[in-house]
Amino acid sequence: MKLLTCPVNGTRPLSEFVFGGECRVPPAADCSDKVWADYVHNRHGAPGIKQEWWYHAPSGTWFIAERNTLTDQVIRTFLKGQEGKQ
């Protein structure tokens, strides 16, 4: 099983995590219906490096993983808002 590193709890097998989807910023609420529908339903589904939500279930920790969806390599993980911190 693949390993993932929770920024708080360390490296664990994937079975301890729940995938929370890509981190996406919604458009402003006054956007057009079309723009909102695009946000809700569509994805940029091509492979690449994406920021994703992951949840470490035993500790209840949400964090963000930067992952290459083509190779399934995780580049780094960090808590939201602490992207720049080590």
């Binding site: 695009d38 339903h41 569509n42 994805r43 940029h44 589904g45 091509a46 492979p47």
Partner: peptide, 17 residues
């Protein structure tokens, strides 16, 4: 590979692989 093909025409779809 649909998202990769769609990317070639600038189309986003709901498809996730």
């Amino acid at each position: 590979f649909t998202p990769r093909i769609c990317e070639m025409v600038g189309l986003d779809t709901p498809i996730v692989i």
